[in-house]
Simulated assay, not measured.
Amino acid sequence: MTDTIMSDGTEKTTIDGEDINFDDFQLEDFDTAETAAEPVQHAGHDLNFFKNIPVTVTLEVASKELSLGDLMKAGEGSVIELDKMNGEPLDVKVNGSLLGHAEVVVVNDKYGLRLIDVIDTALSSVES
């Protein structure tokens, strides 16, 4: 804990994160009328709430990291080589995090994806 005297004469106390020991808190004994009246459901018991949360699924063909200067030189007809070979599985991302790999399919004139493998085992274990 650090005390600092401000220029206006007030004292400001700052707490360093290392000064706090959360083991000292008795959180399991914390009880209010609201929590006592209604039992708390733990996350492992009912996951139906989470099944309705919308997420964005993205199929990423490939990528390339290059400098802004190189990108500014690109014009119509320019070719930028990407990091995947033809025929390699594509990355499936959920809200930007890698879920697995897939291949492109066409269903009723719309693009779709066929999952080849799922990397995030925690997500697949949520299914009921």
Rank of each mutant, 00 (worst) to 15 (best):
M1H: 09
M1L: 13
M1E: 11
T2A: 12
T4L: 14
M6E: 15
S7R: 12
I15K: 06
G17T: 07
E18N: 13
E18A: 14
D23G: 13
D23C: 03
L27K: 05
D29F: 06
D31Y: 00
T32K: 01
A33I: 04
A37Y: 00
G44F: 01
G44R: 07
H45G: 05
L47T: 12
F49Q: 11
N52E: 12
I53D: 05
P54W: 04
T58K: 00
E60W: 02
V61S: 11
V61R: 07
L66S: 05
L66H: 02
S67V: 02
D70F: 01
L71N: 04
M72H: 03
M72F: 01
M72P: 00
A74I: 03
S78D: 11
V79S: 08
E81N: 10
M85D: 13
M85G: 10
K93L: 08
G96I: 08
L98K: 15
L98D: 09
L99E: 02
G100F: 07
H101N: 13
V104A: 06
V105W: 04
N108E: 15
G112H: 07
G112A: 09
G112I: 08
L113A: 15
R114N: 14
L115M: 15
I116P: 01
I116Y: 02
D117Q: 11
V118K: 10
I119Q: 12
T121G: 07
A122K: 14
V126F: 10
S128C: 01
